[in-house]
Computed example of a mutant assay.
Amino acid sequence: MRRKKEIIMTVEKTDTGFSAFSNDYPIFTTGENVPELMNNAFEAAELYFEDEDIKLGHEDIKFEIDFQQFFQFYRVLNAKYLAQKIGMNATLLSQYVQGHKKPSEKQTEKILKGIHDIGQELSGINLLHKVRK
């Protein structure tokens, strides 16, 4: 069994959830939410490569979404806060988010690292709640 190279799936927000497609292979799928989309994409890729006896792992599929759609969907992430967190000019990040400018690869990596860092911070927080008597 052979291993396949990385498959890039472009993610887009739709009226009913999400869609993803590959520019390199005729692989496409949809899902109501991101986890469902990712599972469906893996199944679609496995199905496509089934006859070639190629073994895929979840790590072989990478998902990409453009800045505008990312910040449109994840409105909970404040771009001004993110810019401050990563040491970037808030106006510049806003231009990336609105699609007026395209970030360089280095800037994209910096932004993605900031998003991942915020995600790590949030995943380590437990919310307390008090039951009123």
Rank of each mutant, 00 (worst) to 15 (best):
K133G: 08
N39Q: 15
V76E: 15
K4V: 07
I115P: 00
K13R: 13
N39F: 07
I65K: 09
L77P: 03
L128K: 10
K102I: 12
S104L: 13
G87C: 03
P35W: 15
A90T: 07
A79I: 04
S94W: 02
L92E: 05
G17R: 04
L47G: 10
S104H: 10
N40F: 10
E109G: 03
D66M: 08
N33R: 15
G124F: 06
S22G: 03
K5H: 13
G114K: 00
D60F: 06
S123N: 14
A44G: 05
N23S: 13
H58E: 10
Y74L: 02
H116D: 01
N78T: 04
I54M: 15
A90W: 04
F49V: 02
M9V: 03
L93V: 01
A41F: 04
S104R: 03
N40H: 09
A90R: 07
L112G: 00
H129C: 11
G87V: 06
E36Y: 12
Y25F: 13
D117V: 00
P26W: 13
A45M: 02
I118A: 06
K130T: 15
N89L: 05
Q68T: 07
I54V: 14
K13H: 12
I86W: 08
F73D: 02
E52D: 06
E52V: 05
I111F: 02
Q95N: 15
I118W: 12
T16K: 10
K102W: 01
P103L: 00
Q84W: 11
K4Q: 14
A45F: 11
P35V: 11
E46A: 12
I61L: 06
D117A: 01
S104E: 05
R2D: 06
I7G: 06
F73Y: 10
Y74F: 15
E43Q: 07
E64L: 14
F42V: 07
T30A: 13
E105M: 14
Q69P: 11
Q107T: 03
Y81N: 06
F28D: 14
L93E: 00
K106N: 10
S19E: 08
N40T: 07
F49H: 06
G17M: 06
I125D: 04
V131S: 13
E52P: 06
G31K: 15
M38C: 12
T10V: 12
S104P: 09
N33L: 15
G31N: 07
I115H: 01
D117R: 00
H116L: 03
L122Q: 11
I118C: 07
Q98K: 11
E50P: 05
E50Y: 15
K62M: 05
T10P: 03
Q107D: 04
I54F: 14
I125T: 12
I125N: 08
